[in-house]
Simulated scan of single mutants.
Amino acid sequence: MTKPYLAGAFIGLAISLTAGLASAGPIERACNRSGSNNANRATCSCIQQVADSTLRGSYQRRAAKLMNDPDLAHEVWISKRESDDEFWEHYKAFGDAAAAYCG
C-alpha cells in the first residue's frame, strides 16, 4: 500500500522540479550556464525576477546572449545605432537593479 504513495510522491516531486526548470526565463538559463562561481540557482532566479520587472521579452533574450559573450556586449556598447543605445540603457538599468536586489 505504501508503494503507490511513494511512487506518487516521487512523480509529484519530479513534475514540480521539471516545471521549475521549464519556466526559467532566458536570463536565468544563461546565468545557470555561465559557469561563474557566483551563479547558483537562487541568484540566477533572483536575476530573472529582476529581468521580468525591468526588461521586455526581446531585451531579455538579447541580454542573455550578452551575458556569456563579452565581445558581443562590447560591440553593442560601442555601437552608434540608436536601437543599440536604447537597449544598452535598459540593460544597464537592469544590471544595476539586479546588483542591488540580488547582490
Results as ranks from 00 to 15, higher is better:
T2N: 03
T2V: 15
K3M: 03
P4D: 11
A7N: 09
A7G: 04
A7I: 12
A7R: 12
G8V: 12
G8F: 12
G8C: 10
G8S: 07
A9M: 13
A9T: 08
F10M: 15
F10E: 00
F10S: 10
L13H: 05
A14H: 02
I15K: 13
S16Y: 15
L17F: 10
L17S: 11
A19D: 02
A19L: 15
G20I: 02
A24R: 15
A24S: 12
A24T: 07
G25P: 00
P26Q: 04
P26G: 10
P26K: 08
R29S: 10
R29L: 12
R29D: 08
A30Y: 07
A30C: 14
A30N: 07
N32G: 13
R33L: 14
S34I: 11
S34F: 01
G35F: 15
G35R: 14
S36A: 15
N37K: 11
N37S: 12
N38M: 11
N38G: 05
N38T: 09
A39C: 05
N40Y: 03
R41Q: 03
R41P: 00
R41D: 02
A42V: 01
A42F: 00
T43E: 02
C44I: 03
C44Y: 02
I47W: 01
I47K: 04
I47A: 08
I47N: 05
Q48Y: 00
Q49D: 06
S53W: 00
T54S: 08
L55H: 03
S58T: 09
S58D: 08
R61T: 09
R61F: 03
R62F: 02
R62P: 00
R62L: 02
R62G: 00
A63K: 15
A64F: 06
A64N: 10
A64W: 05
K65S: 12
L66Y: 09
L66R: 03
M67R: 09
N68S: 15
P70M: 09
D71I: 08
L72S: 08
L72C: 02
A73T: 03
A73K: 05
E75I: 00
V76P: 01
W77I: 08
W77N: 08
W77M: 12
W77R: 12
S79P: 01
S79L: 10
K80C: 00
R81M: 00
E82P: 03
E82S: 06
S83R: 05
S83K: 06
D84P: 00
D85A: 05
E86C: 04
E86Q: 07
F87P: 15
E89V: 14
E89W: 04
H90I: 01
Y91E: 06
K92N: 14
K92Q: 15
A93W: 13
A93L: 14
F94L: 15
G95L: 09
G95R: 12
D96A: 07
D96K: 14
A97M: 06
A97G: 04
A97N: 11
A99G: 02
A99I: 07
A100I: 01
A100F: 13
A100T: 14
Y101E: 07
Y101P: 00
Y101M: 12
C102P: 06
G103D: 05
